[in-house]
Simulated scan of single mutants.
Amino acid sequence: MPYALVTGAAKGIGKAIAAELAAKNYGLLLVDLDAHGVNTTAAELIVTYKVPVQVLHLDLSKPDAAEQVKVWTADHHRELSVVVNNAGYGLNGRFEELSVRDQLNIIDVNIRAQVAISHTFIPILRSFPRSYLLNVGSTTAFQTVPFLNIYAASKAFVLSFTRGLRFELRQSPVSVSCLIPGSTDTDFVNRAGMGLKTLRIAERFNMTPEKVAKIAVKGLFAGKAEIIPGFTNRLNGLLPKFFPKIFVEKIAAGIYEPAQLSSDLQAVPAAT
């Protein structure tokens, strides 16, 4: 049986991608910091799809996280042909008011962990006639987003890194793709403490995690470089190229400027 590794699999897009892969008869190796959430997800997937599921509770911001994941997955390296780097989170607020430690942690999870896991598992993926690496970005990668600054910048890195890696591996068995979802119904805006205006805007454009995951897995196995679910999200990826940057920044700032005081701002799982 083929296996897939999915990080950030407790809920949202990660959980939905795991379900899509389980439906295709993949055994699952799920990693998440949320022990209760990922255990619940695993139990649901086992009952629904009758596939083996194993879980690892791990903080991917730790320097040795990728090595821990490699050791934990060792028994399945001969079957592990899909790796999904989904884990990520964001902070809503003004850069100078947010803890620098928390903001550097975004970089550790969204960038360092993704790079480390990619580097760790590419040699394993190379051993198959065909294998797949999916890095999850965001439509925030296409423009600067004030008040969601570090998150958006980290996703710009993800997109650039993934495209560069895809080119380097173009003659290898490893197909590298970047999933670029927009607003997704993962409760991101509520957990971020964003204002009612932002919530209403998000609700207008939200896609379900299940819909995003279905498009993601289809695009992954089709070998697409960029997978952007939904017409609106594809449009959002295109339009910033045709307007002055300051104009795009003002629009984004109008959406994400926090109404709460800095003491109310909090770290939240991102709506990748």
Rank of each mutant, 00 (worst) to 15 (best):
G219M: 12
I228D: 01
G195I: 06
V109E: 01
T208N: 09
A23K: 00
V217H: 01
Y3Q: 06
A43P: 02
K245S: 13
L199I: 14
K155N: 07
G230Y: 08
I227K: 06
L80M: 11
L45I: 04
L165E: 04
D185S: 14
G223R: 11
V51Q: 04
R126W: 04
P129E: 13
K211M: 10
C178W: 00
H77K: 10
A43L: 11
L169H: 08
G37H: 05
K70W: 13
S127K: 15
E97K: 14
A216V: 06
V136N: 02
V212S: 07
H119S: 11
L199A: 14
E210H: 11
N39V: 03
K214R: 14
A153H: 05
L29P: 00
A23M: 03
I17V: 15
S177N: 10
A16I: 05
G223A: 09
L91S: 08
L165H: 05
Q103F: 02
E226S: 13
L165M: 13
A213H: 05
A222L: 14
S138Y: 03
D264H: 11
R166D: 02
I215G: 00
P181N: 10
E168K: 14
A19T: 05
A22L: 08
G14Q: 04
A216K: 03
L91E: 09
T41Y: 02
K245C: 07
E20H: 00
I246Y: 08
G223K: 12
A141M: 08
I13W: 00
A16W: 02
L56F: 05
A216P: 02
T48P: 00
R200N: 13
V174W: 06
N85Q: 07
G254C: 05
I17T: 04
Q266Y: 03
S138H: 04
A65V: 08
R166A: 15
Q114S: 12
T40H: 12
R204I: 09
T40F: 04
T208G: 09
G193N: 12
P181V: 07
D185V: 06
A225M: 12
K211P: 00
K241C: 09
S99D: 09
